[in-house]
C-alpha cells in the first residue's frame, strides 16, 4: 500500500472515528457535569433569554468599539486566518471533491491562483500570530503546550498543502499522502486540544449571553 493509499484510506477512517468519538465524548463529558438551578427571579422570560443567548453567539463576533480598539490586531489577524483557512479548505476544488466524497454533494470552487494567494496570507498570518504568542508578555504567560501543539497541527495541512503544490523535494503522491496525513493528525488532535473551541464557542457564547440577559444586560 502506498503512503497516499494509507493516508486517505486506513488513516483517514481511523482519524475520523477518533474525531467523532472524541468530540461527542468531550462535549457530553463537559456538558453533563452536576448542574444547579439558578432560582433567582429573572428580569426577562425564559424565551427571551434563549433569544438573547442565541443573539450573543452572533454579536460576540463584533465587540463594541471600546473593546475593539484595544484588540484590533488580534481581532483582524484572528479573522484573517480563520476566513483564509476556511476559504482554502472549502473552495479549493480538490478539497471540495475530498469533502464531496464524504458528504455526497459539491459546490463551486475558486481558481487555484486565488487559493494560493489566500493560503499564503493565511500562513503568513499564522506565523505572525505564533511570533506574537512567543513574544507578547500576556500571551507568553498564558500559553500552554496545547497552544503550540494546536498551532502546529493547524498549520501543518497548510504547509504540506503548499509543498504539494510546489512539489518540494518529494514525489507529488508522497507529498499528497503527507498532506492527507497532516489532516488526519488535525482530526485526531481536534477533540483533545483547544481546537474544540469550534464547538464549545456556541454553548459558551450562548451561556454568557443568557446569564447576562437573566440580569437584564445585553452583552
Amino acid at each position: 500500500m502506498s503512503l497516499l493509499d494509507f493516508a486517505r484510506g486506513t488513516a483517514l477512517q481511523w482519524s475520523l472515528y477518533i474525531f467523532v468519538v472524541g468530540i461527542i465524548w468531550r462535549i457530553l463529558g463537559a456538558a453533563l457535569v452536576m448542574r444547579r438551578k439558578d432560582m433567582s427571579q429573572a428580569r426577562i422570560s425564559g424565551a427571551e433569554r434563549v433569544k438573547e443567548g442565541a443573539m450573543t453567539i452572533l454579536t460576540r463576533s463584533v465587540p463594541p468599539e471600546t473593546f475593539e480598539k484595544r484588540i484590533r490586531f488580534s481581532h483582524i489577524t484572528g479573522y484573517l486566518w480563520h476566513i483564509g483557512y476556511f476559504v482554502v479548505v472549502l473552495f479549493f476544488i480538490p478539497h471540495i471533491l475530498f469533502i464531496k466524497s464524504f458528504l455526497g454533494f459539491e459546490w463551486p470552487g475558486l481558481p487555484n491562483p486565488m487559493i494560493l494567494v489566500i493560503g499564503a496570507i493565511t500562513l503568513a498570518t499564522l506565523v505572525a500570530l505564533l511570533v506574537r504568542r512567543m513574544t507578547h508578555p500576556v500571551l507568553k504567560l498564558i500559553s500552554t503546550a496545547d497552544d503550540y501543539i494546536s498551532w502546529l497541527v493547524a498549520a501543518l495541512p497548510l504547509i504540506t498543502g503548499y509543498m504539494v503544490v510546489a512539489r518540494v523535494g518529494l514525489h507529488y503522491e508522497t507529498l499528497l499522502g503527507l498532506h492527507v496525513l497532516s489532516f488526519c493528525l488535525l482530526l485526531i488532535w481536534f477533540p483533545f486540544g483547544k481546537l474544540m473551541h469550534v464547538f464549545f464557542i456556541f454553548p459558551s457564547r450562548y451561556n454568557v449571553g443568557a446569564i447576562f440577559a437573566r440580569r437584564g444586560v445585553r452583552v
Binding site: 463537559a30 456538558a31 457535569v33 500571551l139 497552544d147 483547544k194 474544540m196 464549545f200 464557542i201 451561556n207
Partner: peptide, 13 residues
C-alpha cells in the same frame, strides 16, 4: 457547573 466546564474547555488563550 456545566457552563463553567464548557467555558474552561473553550479558552484559546
Amino acid at each position: 457547573m456545566p457552563h463553567e466546564a464548557m467555558d474552561l474547555e473553550t479558552c484559546v488563550h
